[in-house]
C-alpha cells in the first residue's frame, strides 16, 4: 500500500523542502521506494537540495501536458537507488498544474512507489492546494514562532476541508513537525515550547528537529541532511520521524548535537 504525504506549512522558509528531502532519504535508506515531488512551480528548489539540479530534463508539468512520460521525468538519486525526484517546472505558467493532471500522475506513482512525498509551495494558492489534494497524510512543518503557528493553523483548516479525502468524509492524518527548535531558548521562555505549539494546533507531533548548522551544510553541498551526516542531531531527529511515519513507536527526544572538545574549543558559527 503506497502512502501519499504532503509536506506543507503555509509560511515560507520554515523547512518544507529540507524536511521533504531528509525524510524521503531516510525512508529510502531503510529500503522503501520513495519519490519526492516538487510542487513549487516557478520556484523549484527540491532539485537543488537533493543535488540533482543539473540532471533535470523534464518536469511535472511536462508529464501532465503529455510532453514527457513519467519515467522520463523521474530522476534517480545518485546515492540511493530507490529515491526518485519529480521536479517542478522552473519557467512555465503555474496554471498548467491541473487537478486532473495531478490526480493522474499520483495514481501512476502509487503503482510504483511505497511513499509519494509532495513538497508544497508556501502560501495557500493553487500549487499548495494541489500538493495536498490527493494526500493520505500531511506533515505540517512549523517553527516555534507566532507567524508560523498561525499559518499552520490555517493550513490544518484547509487539510480538513479541501483535500479529496476530507471531501469524501474521511479524516486526513495530520502530523506536526517542529523544525529549527532551540531547546535552550525554549527553556528560557524566549520561544514557544513544544507543548504550547501542540496545544494550540491540537495535532500530534511527528518530530522535533533542532536548529543546526548541519542543515545548512547539507543544502550547501546538495545532499539531504540524513545522508550527508546521518549521526548529526537533525539527521537523527529526521530518522526518528521517518520511523514514526512507518508506525513505529519511538520515544520523543530532542537530539542534541554531539560535539567534541575540539569543536567546543574552536566553536564557530556557520556563516
Amino acid at each position: 500500500m503506497s502512502q501519499v504525504l504532503v509536506v506543507t506549512s503555509g509560511k515560507g522558509g520554515v523547512g518544507k523542502t529540507t524536511s521533504t528531502a531528509a525524510l524521503g532519504a531516510a525512508l529510502a535508506h531503510d529500503g522503501a521506494k520513495v519519490v519526492v515531488i516538487d510542487f513549487d512551480v516557478g520556484l523549484r528548489n527540491l532539485d537543488l537540495v537533493l543535488g540533482a539540479e543539473r540532471r533535470v530534463v523534464f518536469d511535472l508539468i511536462n508529464v501532465i501536458n503529455g510532453v514527457a512520460r513519467l519515467s522520463q521525468a523521474l530522476i534517480r538519486d545518485k546515492r540511493l537507488d530507490n529515491l526518485h525526484l519529480l521536479p517542478a517546472s522552473q519557467t512555465r505558467d503555474k496554471d498548467a498544474l491541473t487537478e486532473e493532471g495531478v490526480a493522474k500522475v499520483i495514481e501512476e506513482l502509487r503503482t510504483k512507489f511505497d511513499w509519494i512525498i509532495c513538497d508544497s509551495p508556501a502560501g495557500i494558492e493553487r500549487g499548495a492546494t494541489l500538493a495536498m489534494r490527493y494526500a493520505d497524510a500531511a506533515i505540517i512543518v512549523t517553527n516555534p514562532e507566532v507567524s508560523s503557528v498561525r499559518d499552520s493553523d490555517r493550513i490544518i483548516g484547509l487539510l480538513d476541508s479541501k483535500t479529496a479525502k476530507a471531501e469524501r468524509g474521511e479524516r486526513i492524518d495530520k502530523h506536526v513537525l517542529i523544525t529549527r527548535y532551540h531547546s535552550s531558548r525554549a527553556a528560557r521562555g524566549e520561544t514557544l515550547s513544544i507543548d504550547d505549539v501542540l496545544e494550540i494546533l491540537s495535532t500530534p507531533l511527528l518530530g522535533i528537529i533542532p536548529e543546526s548548522e548541519e542543515v545548512l551544510r547539507a543544502s550547501n553541498v546538495g545532499s539531504p541532511v540524513t545522508l550527508n551526516n546521518p549521526l548529526s542531531a537533525p539527521a537523527r531527529a529526521y530518522f526518528d520521524a521517518a520511523r514514526r511515519l512507518k508506525g513505529e513507536q519511538v520515544p520523543m527526544l530532542v537530539p542534541a548535537e554531539i560535539r567534541s572538545i575540539f569543536d567546543k574549543l574552536f566553536a564557530r558559527k556557520a556563516a
Binding site: 507566532v146 493553523d153 490555517r154 521562555g189 524566549e190
Partner: peptide, 17 residues
C-alpha cells in the same frame, strides 16, 4: 519571558480566525 505572551496572543487570534 516573551513566550507566554506569544502563546496568549496566538490563542486569542486563532479562536477568532
Amino acid at each position: 519571558r516573551s513566550a507566554p505572551i506569544a502563546r496568549e496572543r496566538l490563542q486569542i487570534l486563532l479562536a477568532h480566525e
